[in-house]
Design a protein around this nucleic acid. Structure first.
Lengths: 241, 241
DNA sequence: TTCAAGTATTTTGTCGATATTTTTTACTAT
DNA sequence: ATAGTAAAAAATATCGACAAAATACTTGAA
């Protein structure tokens, strides 16, 4: 009746660590959540677009139940807006909101950064060094693929605050980071990035590794605001967002 | 064909302004969300308690669909935790988390307060005065009903930051406020409130109306931390939360 | 006690029916 | 035409029955 089962001990495990949406989804709800969020952040679903469940069912190949649950979660995250009896739609965007998000992100990211610099151990340091290195390699290449850059940029910022112990701070920060990313994507900021982002990242890394909290926060703030300013300018020029 | 319809012009409208959960719910999902959140914040649903949909259906008299949607939203709000394939349960509580929430609340509430003091117009001022008055009356009465006090206290703090224009800040703040309230309720902080909360509220009000941003923030921070300290002490003494 | 097979329960997800509500369309009396 | 409205069509929200998958529990050896 057995004999084969033992082999399964050596089979690769499902590797289901965190409940993170980016991790391999344990349920269809997680799947729908991750894909919807991604599509919204990348602008494949436009601001204000109606999110009809019947349509999404075909698009993602899941039923109405997991879809509605995913949409509900995204509503609390601010990526989707829900009006009773009127369905879901992709959250609108505005220059005013970009401003809000920028200001809040500066505060929260600096808070996390400061805590991280103070708490950071060897593992944190090497994490920062590694993430910066991977990002730097990409930034100095002649083929700056935006998708990859976004991923590496995210990794770098997350590595910086990796030693922050506040789950709540982390949670809020990640939401704001993705909201910001959504604006960058809307502006298609890749085409026009004249300023030296690489130098900015380097300054932040140096200050952080040098355990200089004030300088790291200052550099970080400047970095965020510059990116936000460029985003804002592009949006103002191109459209009447 | 008509003559009566005109009367409806004067009839009170449904007043369905914001999508706030506290407003009269437009859908059963909103209803379930509001009641679940309330029951969790007030401790009627204990930390870690299993939230079985079949049971909640009977408890709230709504179907599984709106319940799962409400639970999903609460998951994003941090009041409920969901583990794939293992259902929902009321989020756990810990002294460490109380600390996180306190620190973050101080930062965000002060941010909103500062902005509010700078932007506040006449309506804001009178709102603060009125909310303080109602709170004061209750605090000086000999019958300090906790439920009412909590409501008035909330109104006062919200009135203070009413002129803050950042929706995101507001949203985060409200979540943190309710999380804090949950800890206060867990500690049953009403029984033992020896310090003069009223004086603290008064100081905040005076500084705010005097447009003294720094002092208002300092008083506010002290106020929040004192309450949090009492909460924390009670929890440490009574249980091993 | 410990282990593991077998059973019971729970959770997730699908489908289809239905009551409501919103949006459109068509029509009518200025 | 134009505001206003009634009827029709389309969306939305909700429920209930069920099936498949996963987890939790029981129980009988070893």
């Amino acid at each position: 009746m057995a004999g084969i089962p033992d082999l399964e001990v050596f089979a690769p495990e499902p590797a289901r660590g965190r409940a993170d949406a980016t991790a391999s989804p344990r349920t269809l709800t997680d799947l729908a959540y991750a894909r919807l969020r991604d599509d919204i952040v990348h602008g494949r679903l436009e601001p204000g677009a109606k999110l009809r469940v019947e349509h999404l069912k075909k698009l993602y190949g899941v039923g109405a139940t997991p879809l509605r649950e995913a949409l509900s979660r995204l509503t609390s995250d601010g990526f989707v807006s829900a009006e009773g009896q009127r369905g879901f739609r992709v959250a609108e965007m505005s220059l005013a909101e970009l401003d809000e998000i920028t200001n809040l992100r500066v505060v929260l990211e600096n808070l996390a950064l400061a805590q991280s610099i103070r708490n950071g151990d060897d593992a944190w340091e090497s994490g920062v060094v590694a993430a910066f290195h991977r990002l730097a390699k990409l930034e100095q290449a002649e083929d700056p693929d935006l998708g990859q850059w976004e991923d590496r940029n995210r990794d770098f910022h997350l590595a910086l605050i990796a030693a922050c112990t506040s789950q709540w701070l982390r949670r809020f920060y990640e939401t704001l980071y993705d909201q910001h990313k959504r604006y960058r994507n809307l502006a298609r900021i890749d085409k026009s990035m004249p300023r030296d982002v690489h130098a900015e990242h380097k300054s932040i890394r140096d200050a952080a590794l040098g355990r200089d909290v004030d300088r790291a926060c200052a550099e970080n703030e400047r970095h965020i605001r510059r990116t936000a300013d460029v985003t804002s300018r592009i949006l103002r020029e191109n459209t009447g967002v």
